[in-house]
Nucleic acid binder design. Structure first.
Lengths: 235, 235
DNA sequence: CGTGTGATTGACGCCTGTCAACGTCTGTGG
DNA sequence: CCACAGACGTTGACAGGCGTCAATCACACG
């Protein structure tokens, strides 16, 4: 018999991650725990595709998911990453539109599936939860706006430096200063919005300038203040 | 004595524009009408600035507002426009952050000011309104994501063609086919994310190619299908 | 009539995308 | 154990899109 992984109760996640669910009542949490599904997904698995109808949303219990859009000629544009405690797909559930991004696992993940009905019930019956959700969306929108400004105005070099800092802030460094997220050069390019070759060349330059050190996909940040300066980051 | 413009009652706006307020009860509408302020603003007036604390949000009764961020070296990046029936600034009110954009009048406007308190009351007490608001935010977020992908992947030429189509969809054409929004070349550049000179050159090219006709700030769309093709627009 | 803002045009060159070739690593199958 | 395929990373050459600078023109306004 297969070794079924232990399904985490919602109560644990909520206390551990300070998620958007933090304002749920005990009853609501229990119902959520009961209604939800939970599964493990290997790197490379696609959770849902742009344009598909969502029947619910997912809460990330562990792992990393990349959310991306497919642009002209199939080139992917990474919009953001989701990690422990984040929820994905709820945007489409709420606005009742087809998914506007695709979601793919890039670090083995454990996801909980929350059916639309359950989600809607919470939104409608718990004003605090609803407010929390809205604030999250608003913050995300604010970030999207900054992203737009950056991509429109900054050079590729600046954007790459900036992304490295953002990745540090979102995923942290290990005790050697290595970014705790592993991306291919192509994925880096698809965040920055440039060609793979450009990323490679610029990373080499950063290395020559002693801003970073490279070891395969491991990127060690050596000089964070200078990276911030290179990225023209002010806030 | 100065001729004070008639303050529009909320009830009229709501029935005319199908705004987010459409689900308010009669009592709520009356309270909103009572609490709100209303003022006229001339082209060029700044409603609020990026980074400022909002004490409420604005509902556009008439005119056009541009929402923009100030990027590196003070260059402005236009995020979106707001017109009749739209509300602006509520994002910052809800998430209780400083305004992430500045708002400037580009077509003489009439705006109603809704104090934070009033707005919060509505959100907390009217689940339908709250849901409507959230859906609006979600749609906006979806658009922002598309925008990111476009800016990151398309050429300036494609983006300019696309923007012209978007402006047509949002503001319409007069009976001669002229875009019903008047923008400087610099503003066009600040939407597309390019230099003013590039916009000028590309507009000239579009004119040579009989895609558009130019007369000062008036842009007449001559060949919309071809513009769509030039912009690589699919949906 | 001077001033200022916006529009236009030309020259110039760098940043960046594209193409092509090659190196590296991993896993698979014979 | 080795050969091979396939994905990923790297490097070089090259062209052209696009930003920058500068000069000039057009037009409105006090």
């Amino acid at each position: 018999m297969k070794n079924i992984p232990e399904i985490p109760g919602c109560i644990n996640c909520i206390s551990n991650f300070k998620s958007v669910f933090k304002n749920l009542s005990e009853d609501e949490i229990n119902k959520l725990s009961f209604d939800k599904g939970c599964d493990q997904y290997k790197r490379g698995t696609i959770i849902y595709n742009e344009g598909s109808r969502m029947t619910g949303c997912y809460c990330v219990n562990d792992g990393i998911i990349k959310l991306y859009k497919t642009g002209v000629e199939g080139k992917e544009q990474i919009i953001r990453f989701a990690k422990k405690g984040d929820i994905i797909g709820f945007r489409s559930v709420l606005s009742n539109e087809a998914a506007c991004t695709s979601a793919k696992v890039i670090d083995d993940a454990m996801l909980c599936f929350i059916p639309s009905v359950t989600f809607f019930e919470l939104v409608e019956n718990n004003a605090k939860f609803s407010m929390e959700l809205m604030q999250m969306t608003c913050r995300e929108l604010g970030e999207a706006n900054s992203y737009i400004t950056d991509i429109a105005q900054k050079t590729v070099r600046e954007r790459l430096a900036e992304i490295l800092i953002h990745l540090k802030n979102d995923f942290g460094l290990d005790n050697e200063g290595v970014l705790q997220i592993s991306l291919t050069r192509e994925e880096l390019a698809n965040i920055v919005g440039t060609a793979t070759e450009s990323v490679i060349r610029l990373l080499s330059e950063f290395k020559s300038d002693a801003l970073i050190d490279l070891n395969g996909r491991k990127i060690k940040l050596l000089n964070i203040p200078k990276l911030i300066k290179t990225g023209n980051i002010y806030e």
